[in-house]
Design a protein around this nucleic acid. Structure first.
Lengths: 211, 211
DNA sequence: TTTTTGGCTTGACAACTGTCAAGCTCCGGG
DNA sequence: CCCGGAGCTTGACAGTTGTCAAGCCAAAAA
């Protein structure tokens, strides 16, 4: 890990900068591979060797790019964040009416639940891990905040279309939707075909009452 | 595990019944010990030897009383259920007004968050595990249902005092409170002193608007 | 008393874990 | 062309894991 030390040096040469970019790119590549396996097996059952086997590398690389396993997982969490906190922003930006926003949101919600179930169960897994492992807390709390803000943007826009303001706090609103999504995800993974439509119905009914 | 076979036999002698009672009592005793360690370390980091070390027994017993580790954890989950799904029922039964119900509920909520944080983070951990491990799903879904019913009893009683009915579905109501509790728990465990009062404020504000 | 048996311990097993040193390969700069 | 080092692999390490057979001991059964 001499690499991390050079990164701290004030004046880096151009070639060092390039090397650091490559280094970080590989870190992210490895984190992405790790996310795949983590999403498949969950935190408790995922080993470095298993991650490596589902990637183009061998298990030794991870010690070259990460100080230890926690460092890798933290990197995974941070990378995951970037991908998910703007998921609904396009819908918010392009919708021109309440109905359009509603349908766009619901469609994205359903698609997420069906196509990215593994990534989301991992999120819930890691958020639970943060309750035990202090090293995860900072990143997890940050992601939670970002997700809360994302939900708030949707609700605000929705209320705006009706000339109103959301009736509850950002925290309560996020808790509501996150709770519903989590429950639907579990049912969906358990093979409950009704999980997705039930979630959509619930959200469709709820939106006008909270905003 | 010849024991489980005898349990299936139709006509048991009185002595066999006593033996089975002792057997089940010990199972629960071991499950309770396991819950302690699980609440301390979380599912991912808990081994049978660690559980045994925090109990009065040695690691071999667990194979005598449980077919494997999953069997033990399932037993833990089921035992946990019995202890938590009636937590607020006394408050519901004794309250004679909206205010009394509110204050009783909030007090219990705060006490739970402060004194049983470890058991609750374990619940969230195991619920996440259920998204990966099918063996947990049935029990977890059942507990979730029971908890939803518990919240619904509170809300119904609260609404009743106001001569109203809850404004949302049981599922949405549970999602809301569960989401808020989960978020508060994480913040509380992260050392946020404001987590508990913030949760209480939020719930106090929310109750009149949903019921 | 002797025998049996349920309840628990002990110790061993193979597999698996995170970690890391040593060494390989191959590319860029000299 | 050669050489150094970055990037990656290999193999080994010490420790831990779930599992389970063998055996011990006290209490019940004979």
């Amino acid at each position: 890990m001499a690499r991390r030390a050079t990164a701290a040096v004030k004046r880096e040469s151009a070639v060092d900068v390039v090397r650091d970019d490559k280094f970080n790119a590989r870190r992210i590549e490895l984190a992405e591979a790790a996310l795949e396996t983590l999403g498949e097996l969950g935190f408790a059952r995922t080993s470095l060797r298993e991650i490596a086997q589902n990637s183009a590398f061998t298990h030794g690389v991870f010690h070259y790019y990460f100080s230890d396993k926690l460092d890798l997982i933290c990197c995974c969490v941070r990378h995951y964040k970037a991908k998910c906190v703007t998921r609904y922003d396009e819908v918010v930006a392009t919708a021109t009416s309440r109905d359009e926003l509603t349908e766009g949101f619901l469609a994205k919600l359903a698609a997420t639940l069906q196509n990215e179930a593994r990534m989301h169960r991992l999120w819930y897994d890691l958020r639970s891990q943060a309750m035990f492992e202090a090293a995860f807390r900072k990143d997890v709390l940050e992601i939670d905040k970002s997700l809360e803000a994302m939900i708030w943007r949707i609700a605000s826009r929705y209320a705006e279309f009706g000339g109103k303001r959301p009736l509850s706090s950002p925290a309560a609103l996020y808790a509501l939707f996150d709770g519903l999504f989590q429950s639907a995800l579990l049912k969906h993974l358990a093979g409950d075909k009704a999980a997705v439509p039930e979630l959509l119905d619930e959200v469709r009914r709820l939106l006008p009452t909270v905003c």
